[in-house]
Design a protein around this nucleic acid. Structure first.
Length: 425
RNA sequence: GGAGAGAUGCGAGAGUGGUUGAAUCGGGCGGACUCGAAAUCCGUUGUACAGUUCUGCUGUACCGAGGGUUCGAAUCCCUCUCUCUCCGCCA
């Protein structure tokens, strides 16, 4: 949520930002609704004041006739209130809806563009490996090694689900522990979060669970939904709290399952584990002061780079363009790993993403801070440490041998307990 | 799931339907005393929203949440949530 005052003072910039992001939102409507709201609040407060003054007059003993006159007056005032109060409620709902559509301002350096191909590559680390055989994709490798079973999952649960078996299980658990160990050394507090959250929290983070294009599974009749990321539950962790400035930044490493509907997402770019309805993820989440958030955002990107560099997976970093940012993000970096099985020649595929959402989420969730330097809404940042399913794709496809054997990256071996996975079929 | 008890400011804890935004104690902050500290004493200490002649002032709302009764509700009524105790069930 953007500050209404900011919209009023920077109307042209807000409109330009909406255009750059390719979004539809109406800041003029927000302002006119905000004006109606103020007017209604004033009228209601005036009436209530009259009511209170009138009631005060009746505190002590007085003769019956005078009292009757005052009572009648009080009743008259009271009768006027409900209409205005209902009107205010309706205006506030409209305002909230209109305001929610206004996206966060984007970083001035964020590249302007419509879709992911407009993202700006800022660095490459590692060289995509040259194969002297035609590399298999992870779907085939998973079948060959008997560590991923899509077919059974389709029968039991539905498409875009999977069973992990044998070494696949330890691959998941090992990746989680590998990432947690790195984060824990950097001061992140490890957390296993609930996989379900209330819709108000989802909305505060910037998801609209009931929206037309929602990627969220809602749970009928409960007001809750399956989380698409631990960003939701970690962002909600301190909702409606005022944090001490000295305690910031607060850094969490959250482990959760992630559930996504992915309606209509099909085709070769979403095959196998790449786009699934359920996966496990270790998520970084930081509450920070406004002064420090940009620096911390760079640090989150560096942590992501370290995690993939140590796994010896080639990747590149992109500065996400305005059209691909998502409403809450001020700036976002994606890490794209090299995936040799993605198309015949291989391709980059997003494996992590880190966003600085500034005070956009904090304003709606009511997360403030107070301290010597000042007070206000905290800045909230998130970043993927490891999205296990895509991590597994990267490892299988990059470290395969001609016979299908997959060699485990050295740094990961202590966490999985084996150094290679051999074909079973 | 069943029975009972409770929910008030930073904490503890009062509060006959009308001088209660809320006693009292503790904590915090400021000051006095002191070489300094402790002790003692004095003062001060909520949040949100709206307006404003804007380092302030005025108004409104807030005593778990939401409704209701009333001229007037922390106080009466209803619903819900949460916490605690006991029983049942269970990983």
């Amino acid at each position: 949520m953007v500050d209404i005052k900011f919209i009023r003072d920077n109307l042209a910039a807000v409109e330009k930002n909406i255009e750059n992001r390719g979004m539809v939102a109406d800041p003029h409507k927000v302002l006119s609704l905000a004006d109606s709201r103020s007017k209604l609040i004033q009228d209601i407060d005036d009436l209530r004041q009259q009511r209170n003054v009138n009631a005060q007059k009746m505190k002590g003993p007085m003769d019956g006739e005078a009292r009757q006159v005052l009572i009648a007056e009080g009743k008259a005032i009271k009768d006027q209130l409900p209409t205005l109060e209902e009107e205010l409620l309706s205006v506030e709902q409209q305002l909230s809806t209109a305001l929610m559509k206004i996206p966060n301002m984007a970083h001035p350096d964020a590249p302007i563009g419509k879709e992911d191909k407009d993202n700006l590559e800022i660095k490459r680390i590692g060289e995509p490996r040259k194969f002297d055989f035609q590399p298999r994709d992870h779907v085939e490798l998973g079948r060959l090694l008997d560590i991923i079973d899509f077919d059974s999952a389709t029968v039991v649960t539905g498409p875009k689900f999977y069973y992990l078996k044998n070494e696949g299980v330890y691959l998941e658990l090992g990746l989680v522990r590998y990432a947690l160990d790195i984060l824990q050394k950097k001061g992140f507090i490890p957390v296993i979060t609930p996989d379900i959250a209330k819709e108000e929290v989802l909305e505060g983070i910037g998801f609209n669970p009931r929206g037309a294009e929602s990627n969220i599974y809602t749970l009928e009749g409960t007001g809750t939904a399956l989380v698409g990321t631990a960003e939701i539950t970690l962002g909600g962790y301190h909702m409606n709290q005022t944090l001490n400035e000295e305690d910031l930044p607060i850094m969490y490493a959250g482990v959760s399952h992630c559930f996504r509907r992915e309606a209509g997402a099909a085709g070769q770019f979403s095959k196998g584990l790449y786009r699934v309805h359920q996966f496990t993820k270790v998520e970084m989440f930081v509450y920070a002061t406004p002064e420090s958030s940009q620096e911390i955002h760079e640090q989150l990107r560096e942590v992501e780079e370290e995690i993939f560099k140590n796994l010896e997976i080639p990747f590149r970093v992109v500065d996400t363009c305005t059209g691909d940012l998502g409403a809450p993000a001020f700036r976002k970096y994606d890490l794209e790993a090299w995936m040799p099985g993605r198309t015949d020649a291989g391709d980059w595929g997003e494996v992590t993403s880190t966003s600085n959402c500034t005070d956009y989420q904090a304003r709606r969730l009511g997360v403030r801070y107070k301290g010597k330097q000042g007070k206000g809404y905290v800045h909230m940042l998130n970043g993927t440490a490891i999205a296990v399913s895509r991590g597994i794709i990267s490892i299988l496809e990059n470290f395969q041998l001609a016979d299908g054997t997959v060699v485990i990256p050295e740094k990961l071996r202590p966490y999985v307990g084996f150094d290679k996975i051999s074909p079973r079929v």
